[in-house]
Design a protein around this nucleic acid. Sequence first.
DNA 1: TTACATGTAATCATTATAATTACAAGTGAG
DNA 2: CTCACTTGTAATTATAATGATTACATGTAA
Lengths: 148, 148
Amino acid sequence: MSISSRFAVGIHILSLIEFNKEGTSSSEFLASSVNTNPAVIRKLMGMLKKAGLVEVRPGIAGAKLAKDLSDITLYDVYKAVNVVQDKELFSLHDNPNPACPVGRNIQNTVEPLFSAAQIAMEKVLGSVTLKDVVKDIAHKEKISGSNL
Amino acid sequence: MSISSRFAVGIHILSLIEFNKEGTSSSEFLASSVNTNPAVIRKLMGMLKKAGLVEVRPGIAGAKLAKDLSDITLYDVYKAVNVVQDKELFSLHDNPNPACPVGRNIQNTVEPLFSAAQIAMEKVLGSVTLKDVVKDIAHKEKISGSNL
DNA sequence: TTACATGTAATCATTATAATTACAAGTGAG
DNA sequence: CTCACTTGTAATTATAATGATTACATGTAA
């Protein structure tokens, strides 16, 4: 199992909008960098828009960031694109046997433990902003551009 | 997306083997508490055995724990049942466009961030043992048994 | 009005999960 | 030895999620 690449694509798109802020970031333009179909991008963009991360308008080409780069964390993107629901990173088996002491308690016992693990992961995502990502990409570009 | 319930079932099984340590924990017995098919349990048991968590022998009914309860963490179970691979909690989109500065760097930039988040989650799992789980179940039983 | 953009639904191939069935092989009581 | 029972394991199936694709309604501005 793996968390949908929609999350990685979301980060990619937002970073690219920033990189291309002087130009026009149409769904086709973004799709060609991600290497996917423009309709996939538009669907994703709808989620990012709903979450208040980007500004897009029907009929008008190009998306813009709706917030400052340093005010968007990876957690914001993660929530925006709906890859994991609250308390649902781990699945529980349903209908364990209520006639068994373990069966009738396992869900309630394990659930808070799973939640804690999920929250720890999400906290890390919350500590990184898109600014960090964009900076890192720019840095990598500089290095590779210098032909070391 | 959600991490396979195989993980929750693994915890269930191991806890039940402990609860039933005076009796015989056959795959059929365990399956009836989990509410699944015995073959599913046997497959899972094979993984737990490979990881050195249980002792089972062909032809002989019943599984036993191979370690002390307090020496088995949820992380051990998680690794044993193979629900998430290293660095693969989050998927990356493949073949981003190498002609684009973002496309050619996004994977390398995002991968360590994703890893860090995954590791934080796994660390929490490593901090909880099966003893904690079994104690909690026993505690819940006592409370409900007392008809509060 | 025309060309081009976004919004969104429907369809499809691919993949993962979990349940189920089936059967080979191991074990020990009688 | 043989029988009843168990584990080990492969094959099959139904169900669900992902991501790609197609299609088209709707919005915009030259």
